[in-house]
């Protein structure tokens, strides 16, 4: 289905390309064989089912059996649902609050680790949490943040009379956000460092002579040169944040029970629709929430690309 489009492109070169030699023509012929296999697999396994999901979102459906047309009913219900509002706020807190913290920490770490003693070691270690299943982290934090746990024992030893109840309902979401920050910071640090390592040393050596500080070097050399990677990470983070789900689920519930609504995100909302602990599954509203996630993903991707793209042009 995508082949004719590509052929057309090949036959009618875009105006931007300056002059088409045999080299450029050969390159254009590569596009089809290079792109189509991935496109095909992706479209069949992910896009076709997603179209189906869009269709479900206009129906009431229990996951099997008869479907009943609901029009926009699922969407209007979702928007009028205060719990959905709460889920939206929580998702945004994760997107921007946790996101800001994660990127800041990762930048600082990347900067520090560029010439720190033991950088390989630290880099290897900060990635560890990503290897540990969320369930284990949830268990560990349960032990650690219990009122009688390690965290408060340490605080009490340090003279804090009334250490906070980390897992109390009013603190729980903050604790969850801290946990996500900790988990993600390591991953992004490793990615940024991989990008920073690819910057030719000559750039830095030139800067050394000018006596630039570490911060200035990072700001003026490392950042601009890995801007693409930062852009990708920003998109990934945004989308990951929209889909935040498993961490909340394992952190704040027993097996088979949903966490309190105060902790819900978009995806927990959708999941709760399709996999309720008790009642009839409502794939319609779950799909509506999923469709909204997809739409927001596209919007965010375009937005971040635009912002990053502009920055790229000005900085180079």
């Amino acid at each position: 289905m995508a082949t004719p489009v590509l052929e057309r492109t090949a036959a009618r070169p875009a105006v931007r390309v300056e002059g088409i030699g045999p080299f450029e023509a050969a390159r254009r012929r590569m596009i089809g064989p290079f792109l189509l296999p991935a496109l095909l697999v992706y479209a069949l396994v992910m896009i076709v089912p997603s179209v189906f999901t869009v269709w479900i979102s206009f129906n009431d459906w229990a996951g099997a059996g008869p479907m009943e047309w609901a029009g926009l009913g699922n969407y209007t219900e979702m928007i009028a649902d205060p719990v959905f509002g709460q889920s939206f706020v929580n998702t945004m807190k994760i997107l921007f609050g946790v996101g800001g913290a994660v990127f800041l920490i990762s930048f600082v770490l990347t900067m520090l680790l560029q010439d720190m003693v033991g950088r390989k070691f630290v880099r290897a270690v900060v990635f560890f949490p990503s290897l540990v299943p969320g369930l284990v982290i949830a268990i560990l934090w349960g032990f650690m943040l219990d009122p009688d746990g390690l965290a408060n024992s340490v605080l009490e030893a340090l003279g804090v009379a009334e250490p906070p109840l980390w897992l109390a309902p009013e603190n729980m979401f903050t604790t969850v956000m801290a946990g996500m920050t900790w988990l993600a910071a390591g991953t992004y640090t490793v990615i940024f460092m991989a990008a920073a390592d690819r910057i030719p040393r000559a750039f830095y050596e030139a800067a050394e002579l000018d006596g630039a500080s570490a911060v200035r070097r990072f700001w003026h050399i490392t950042m601009p040169l890995m801007w693409d990677v930062i852009g990708v990470c920003a998109v990934l983070w945004a989308i990951g944040a929209l889909k935040t789900f498993e961490f909340v689920l394992v952190f704040a519930g027993a097996t088979g029970s949903l966490p309190p609504t105060g902790l819900w995100t978009f995806s927990v909302y959708a999941y709760a629709g399709a996999f309720p602990s008790d009642g009839v599954p409502r794939y319609g509203i779950a799909s509506a929430a999923a469709v909204l996630t997809m739409v927001l993903t596209v919007v965010l991707t375009l937005l971040v690309r635009r912002v990053m793209g502009r920055r790229e042009r000005t900085d180079y």
């Binding site: 897992l167 109390a168 309902p169 519930g253």
Partner: peptide, 9 residues
């Protein structure tokens, strides 16, 4: 702190 622990503590 009964509500500040993790099930099944």
């Amino acid at each position: 702190g009964f509500n500040a622990t993790k099930f099944p503590a």
